Amino acid sequence: MDLALLRTFVTVHRAGSFTRAAALLGLSQPAVTSQIRTLERQLGRPLFLRQARGVTPTTVGDELAHKAAPHLDALVEIAETGLDDDSALRTLHLAGPPEFTAERALPALTRLIGDDGQGFSLRASFGNAEETLEGLAAGHHDLAITTARPRGSLLTATALCDEEHVLVAAPRWPERISSAPPRPKSATPLDNLPVVEVHESLPFVSRYWASVFDARPAASGTVIVPDLRAVLACAVAGAGLAVLPRYLCREALERGDVVPLHDPPVPPLRTYFLVVRTGTLAMPPIARAHEWLQQAAVDWC
């Protein structure tokens, strides 16, 4: 049986789509379709059920994928690392949100490199959830950290940790809130405060308002900057209120640079996921980094 046909088959099985598999393999969709039909003729059994959106594996297809995928992944590992144990370090490519990756993941992984000595070298890139998952699926990254759980069987996600969101501002703002005139029942005293956010859509503030106040924020963004560390700096400088992960603003809270504006009984949480392409945990560097991040995350919760 042709290994190229098996590789195409496993990619389609994981992607759930001829179109997606073609993009991952660098082939045209007709070429992928032709290879799958050739394999089905060789086996004498259908491997996929064609649907309006993508494909679903048959029982025979699932069984073949279960048997073939680990061996194909092992061959990929051999091709990437070579046969010589003394060859150059395997480069691990990590992607994730800039703040969490910089403050949490990278320090943990660089400690692993320091302890392990010969395991791998590290390259990191930043992006939003959609960009990160697309890059992982396309093979640009080995590991991804994201706040979105991917769908389908191409990617495998493991819950990593939860972050608590805190509504904060510089110390002078609570005094202005307490001295403000009474507001209508439908409004909150926070509605007139300027807002510092990462995007015009106010993703963090909107999520906090929906979770805690069951409402939409009335204010628009006063300062928009696409990095939560910069949001914190602007909040410390007095630019307005901000919703931040507690881990990111903990030291500023302890110093009194910012203060909490609200203390809900149940604070809003956001879950981070550690994502890999299905099957790649068979590769030792990826498996080691994956396990190390999970161990480190125990202290992040």
Rank of each mutant, 00 (worst) to 15 (best):
T101F: 04
E80V: 00
A4N: 04
E163K: 05
L154F: 10
C249I: 00
L83H: 10
C161N: 12
R14W: 10
Y247W: 06
W209S: 07
P181H: 09
S206F: 08
V196R: 03
H140K: 12
Q35I: 00
S87D: 14
D227E: 08
L154P: 02
C234M: 06
H13P: 07
A210Q: 14
S178N: 08
L293R: 02
F213A: 11
R37M: 04
T58A: 06
T271A: 02
L202V: 01
T33M: 12
R149I: 12
P217L: 10
V195F: 06
R50K: 11
P30T: 07
L228Y: 06
A180M: 08
A31S: 15
G54A: 03
T158W: 09
A124G: 09
A137W: 01
E130Y: 13
R7G: 02
L24N: 02
A129D: 14
D116F: 13
T147N: 07
V55G: 09
K67I: 13
H71E: 14
P107V: 06
A282K: 04
S201R: 13
I286M: 01
S201C: 04
R37S: 06
R277F: 00
I286A: 03
H141D: 04
E63I: 00
V10D: 02
R250H: 12
L133H: 04
R229E: 08
G54C: 08
V196Q: 00
P57Y: 07
G240S: 00
P171D: 05
D85L: 13
Q42G: 14
L25P: 08
V205R: 10
